[in-house]
Simulated scan of single mutants.
Amino acid sequence: MGFGRDSAIALAVLLVFILLEFTGLRSAGLVDFAIRFATFGLLALSLNLLIGSAGLVSFGHAAYFGMGAYSFGLLMQTGAWSVPAAILAAVAMTALLALVIGALCVRLSEIYFAFLTLAFQMLLHSLILSWIGLTGGDQGLMGGIPKPPFLGVDLARQDHLAAFSLFCLVASAVALRQILRSPFGAALRMLRDNPDRAAFLGLSVFRYRLAAFVIAGSFAGLAGVLMSLYVSGAFPSFAFWTTSGEAIFMIMLGGVSVFLGPLVGTAIFLMLNDWITAVTEHHGLFLGIILLIIVLGLRKGLLDFAVEHWRARRGNQP
Rank of each mutant, 00 (worst) to 15 (best):
residue 4 G to P: 00
residue 6 D to C: 04
residue 6 D to M: 12
residue 13 V to C: 04
residue 13 V to L: 03
residue 14 L to I: 06
residue 18 I to D: 03
residue 26 R to F: 01
residue 26 R to V: 02
residue 27 S to I: 01
residue 31 V to L: 00
residue 39 T to K: 00
residue 43 L to R: 09
residue 45 L to A: 08
residue 46 S to M: 12
residue 47 L to H: 07
residue 48 N to I: 14
residue 48 N to M: 09
residue 51 I to D: 06
residue 54 A to P: 14
residue 55 G to R: 10
residue 63 A to R: 10
residue 80 A to G: 09
residue 92 A to L: 15
residue 96 L to R: 05
residue 96 L to T: 02
residue 101 I to V: 03
residue 102 G to E: 02
residue 117 T to D: 10
residue 119 A to C: 06
residue 128 I to S: 03
residue 130 S to G: 15
residue 135 T to W: 15
residue 140 G to F: 15
residue 145 I to F: 04
residue 153 V to H: 02
residue 155 L to N: 00
residue 160 H to Q: 01
residue 164 F to R: 05
residue 164 F to N: 05
residue 172 S to F: 14
residue 173 A to P: 01
residue 173 A to C: 10
residue 180 L to R: 09
residue 182 S to I: 09
residue 184 F to E: 03
residue 188 L to V: 12
residue 188 L to F: 11
residue 189 R to P: 04
residue 189 R to S: 07
residue 191 L to D: 05
residue 205 V to M: 02
residue 208 Y to V: 11
residue 209 R to F: 09
residue 213 F to V: 07
residue 220 A to V: 08
residue 221 G to K: 10
residue 224 G to S: 02
residue 224 G to W: 01
residue 225 V to E: 02
residue 230 Y to P: 00
residue 231 V to P: 00
residue 232 S to R: 07
residue 234 A to M: 10
residue 235 F to D: 09
residue 241 W to D: 09
residue 250 M to D: 03
residue 252 M to F: 14
residue 253 L to S: 07
residue 266 T to W: 03
residue 276 I to Q: 12
residue 287 L to R: 08
residue 289 I to Q: 05
residue 292 L to H: 14
residue 296 L to A: 12
residue 309 H to Q: 13
residue 309 H to R: 13
